[in-house]
């Protein structure tokens, strides 16, 4: 490098500018520009459920003739087909359908739980929410919950399902 004093000053100035530019880029993009994830008056409806539908076919008892045909160690009195029905879910907000899905059971044998996770942005404020869930082979919804909620800006309305607790659980 040229060691003339003027050139050294120019060189050091250039280095200072280089380091400043580097730090400026790192500093700026580490916090800016700000990202608006939700609008100022927005809220969120989050549907998060895990529920096993009913068996597709009901359990039945084997007849003595059927049992006799089986090996002794296989002679279980009841037969319960493993496959379960899809779970039907509907979420309605102020009369508008937010979610309408038929969720298949998990697993290769289709004998696991149906799981559903959805997030939908909605305006903050008062809303009439209707949640329906059907888990039986027959069409229709065995579990329905309807309520009015007031969502503050940024609030999350969590729609969960717990059959042991009576069905739909709304949390906000």
């Amino acid at each position: 490098m040229n060691t003339h004093p003027v050139n050294r000053i120019v060189s050091y100035t250039g280095q200072a500018l280089g380091y400043t530019a580097f730090c400026a880029v790192v500093a700026y993009f580490s916090v800016a520009p700000p990202y608006r994830h939700l609008p100022p008056d927005g809220a969120l409806v989050k549907l998060s459920l895990q529920h096993a539908g009913q068996r597709k076919e009901a359990c039945h008892e084997r007849t003595p003739e059927e049992l006799a045909k089986l090996a002794p160690n296989m002679r279980a009195a009841s037969v319960c087909p493993r496959e379960r029905v899809p779970v039907a879910v509907e979420i309605e907000l102020d009369g508008r359908m937010l979610v309408r899905e038929s969720v298949p059971p998990s697993g290769f044998a289709k004998d696991g739980s149906a799981t559903l996770y959805r997030r939908v942005g909605v305006p903050a404020g008062e809303h009439r929410v209707v949640a329906r869930l059907g888990d039986a082979p027959a069409p229709g919804f065995g579990y329905v919950k309807e309520t009015t909620v007031t969502l503050k800006p940024g609030a999350i309305l969590l729609l969960d399902f717990d059959a042991n607790a009576g069905g739909w659980v709304f949390r906000s």
Binding site: V26, P33, P34, R36, P40, G154, I156, L158, S172
Partner: peptide, 26 residues
């Protein structure tokens, strides 16, 4: 840079509230 603009945390996480505006690390 660290002394001039120390890194600070956002508000504590609260899973019941969706963050609206974030100082994102791009």
């Amino acid at each position: 840079l660290s002394l001039a603009l120390p890194v600070t945390s956002d508000a504590p996480a609260a899973l019941a509230v969706e963050p609206a505006t974030l100082r994102l690390d791009w």
